[in-house]
Computed example of a mutant assay.
Amino acid sequence: MSQSVAAKRYAVALFEIGKGKSNLDQLEEELLVVQDVFNHDESLSDFLNNPRVSGDQKKEFVRQVFKDVSQDTLNTLLLLIDKRRVDIVQDLVSEFVSMKNEARGIAEADVYSVRELTEDETKQIQDVFAKKMTINTLRINNIVDPSILGGLRIQVGNQIYDGTVKTQLKRLEQNLVTANK
């Protein structure tokens, strides 16, 4: 079973538990903290993936490190240790956040621009694309990319809206090349 399929299964299970208990926001916050700890502490992953360390030692360590998280989040981590699937924590968190956002009508977008967007520009993009995509909210992650020359490139999931000067110049070049043939 691939990692993404396994991560999705665990994320779906945790999502359903959270939905039943109406604590999806809390679970998301906790999972983001867990993800952050895994991202910034390579020794944690090394320890949890070490075959010389017993499962009980790993579980006790996780109980100590994540003592402030809910029982549902902790049980998920302990289950991942039991099933030797600690390596899917990052994917599990991503899947969970995606499911929560989709259930709430929230999408995340990467907006590439030549400079940092102002608050008004960000709000305007959120409003236009939320209506266009029939969602409630669009969260924007602004990425400054001077190579686009001007305009915007917006990526929401697998959809890309490209209105950059760089792309327009490429299209113009292609049209001129094909017109001269």
Rank of each mutant, 00 (worst) to 15 (best):
F129V: 00
D127R: 14
Q124W: 02
T118M: 04
K123W: 00
N141W: 03
R139M: 04
L152S: 12
E121H: 04
N136I: 06
I125W: 03
G150R: 03
F129P: 09
D145T: 01
N142P: 05
G151N: 04
L138Q: 10
G151R: 00
G150E: 03
T134S: 15
D120Y: 02
V144M: 08
G150S: 14
S147T: 14
T122M: 12
I148T: 04
T134C: 15
A130L: 11
P146H: 00
E119S: 13
P146R: 05
K132L: 09
E121R: 09
K131W: 11
E121N: 09
R139P: 01
M133Y: 04
F129R: 04
I125H: 09
D127E: 12
I135G: 14
T118G: 14
F129T: 01
L152C: 09
I125M: 06
Q124F: 05
E119I: 08
V144W: 06
R139H: 06
V128M: 12
D120F: 01
Q124P: 03
G150W: 05
L152Y: 10
I140F: 02
P146V: 00
N142W: 02
K131N: 08
A130R: 10
I143F: 07
L149A: 13
A130Q: 13
Q126W: 01
N141T: 09
S147E: 15
T137S: 07
I125C: 07
L152N: 12
T134Y: 14
P146Y: 00
V144R: 07
N141V: 07
S147F: 08
Q126R: 11
N141C: 05
I143D: 05
L149I: 15
I135T: 14
A130M: 06
L149H: 11
K131S: 15
T122K: 13
N136Q: 12
T122I: 05
G150Q: 10
L138A: 04
V128P: 08
S147G: 09
A130D: 11
T118K: 09
K131A: 11
E119C: 10
N142G: 07
Q126S: 10
I143K: 13
N142M: 03
I125Y: 07
D145R: 06
L152V: 09
D120R: 13
L149N: 14
V128W: 09
I140G: 07
S147V: 08
L149T: 08
K132D: 13
L149W: 11
I140L: 03
N141Y: 10
K123R: 12
N141M: 03
M133V: 01
